[in-house]
Design a protein around this nucleic acid. Structure first.
Lengths: 195, 195
DNA sequence: TTTATTTTTGAATCATCATTCAATAAAGAC
DNA sequence: GTCTTTATTGAATGATGATTCAAAAATAAA
């Protein structure tokens, strides 16, 4: 018998995140991912069915993690709805601030998967948004949030805004300080910009 | 001498928008674009240098149009800053509501061009955002808009939010009525959601 | 050691298009 | 009708890169 050395499965994913971030999914070669992971080209196919399967894994890991953390926030009874909303925003920025490459992949490639309509990741992504929506609903019930808003529109409004800002930050961390960005986002969402 | 029949240059662009929207840029074949435009494959290369050149033309046309229209709004002295802001939002939704395919291409492929860092379109895109930012600056000077906001963050916040909503609408026009969407967006931007 | 089993390898295969270009067609000038 | 010029064509070319697979290497058990 022979035993696996290290964990190539993880090495490949980490390499893929870097390579996808740098070149974009379609311009990334499997051979480059393999090289980055210190692994032979063929090994990639031992662990993943094909190129898209790698992207799928990246996203399902990401959304699983985000969902689980959001779940903790939503079920935390000691927070008000507004505080939960803030915590959700912090969560997203925190997850990406540790990994700029992942942020780039997240922003640039999510649409691909939505187009090829792979479930398994769409599930978690939708569930995440649904869970976030619960916060808003509760806030409306409690009279903290305006009842004139369309929830579906709102959640996509926020999602799009944050996604783009994460992108800006990942491309140019100097201009977009994470902290200033997240503070502004919280302000915009709660109070808008009008005086 | 022979004279051109119709306008293949435009036919190709219109076909490309449809094909890119349906399959995504990287999965779109030149032969499919040619077929859709009722033109031979080779003709595409008479009018455009290569595949990316077509995408570039689509985006530069789009941003040129958006910029020119925004310019009219900004220079309209009979509008307040807040009214200009609303008009800008209407502008974007109007441009895309006529062409769902263009909306999809806009959302899905803009990053490609930013990555390959083609000027000529980036110019207009940046100019558009700069011009929009002027509206906000003026609003702050006039005391209509809060002075505590970071302009760079704000403009990207709004851009990302609208882009994603346009995307949602283009994929599923039933769920996202243009009018309801634009009304909510104006509300969120000006007043946020807190009571 | 030797053998059996599992992992790893990377060169060869194969399919997929973007792009080219020699040939053809059309239109106006004469 | 013939000639010249320009537009159009689409099959052939060539490059690229995902995927495969037979061989090699590593380990544990015997």
């Amino acid at each position: 018998m022979r035993v696996k050395e290290g964990n190539k499965e993880i090495d490949i994913i980490e390499a893929a995140v870097k390579v996808f971030a740098k070149y974009g999914y379609h311009n990334s070669k499997i051979s480059k991912i393999a090289e980055t992971a210190n692994v032979a080209t063929g090994s990639v196919y031992v662990y993943y069915k094909n190129k898209e399967d790698i992207l799928l894994k990246i996203f399902s890991d990401l959304w699983t993690k985000l969902y689980d953390e959001l779940d903790l926030i939503v079920s935390n009874t000691s927070l008000s709805s507004i505080e939960k909303l803030d915590a959700m925003i912090d969560l997203i920025f925190d997850v990406f601030s540790e990994e700029p490459s992942l942020a780039l992949v997240f922003v640039n490639e999510q649409n691909h998967l939505e187009q090829s309509n792979k479930k398994g990741f769409t599930n978690y992504y939708e569930k995440f948004l649904d869970r976030g929506e619960e916060i808003i609903k509760k806030g409306i019930d409690e009279g903290l949030i305006s009842e004139n808003i369309d929830l579906t529109i709102f959640r996509n409004f926020v999602f799009g805004a944050i996604r783009h800002l994460v992108h800006c930050w990942a491309r140019d961390p100097k201009t977009f300080t994470i902290n200033k960005t997240r503070m502004n986002v919280k302000l915009f969402i709660k109070h808008g910009i009008a005086k």
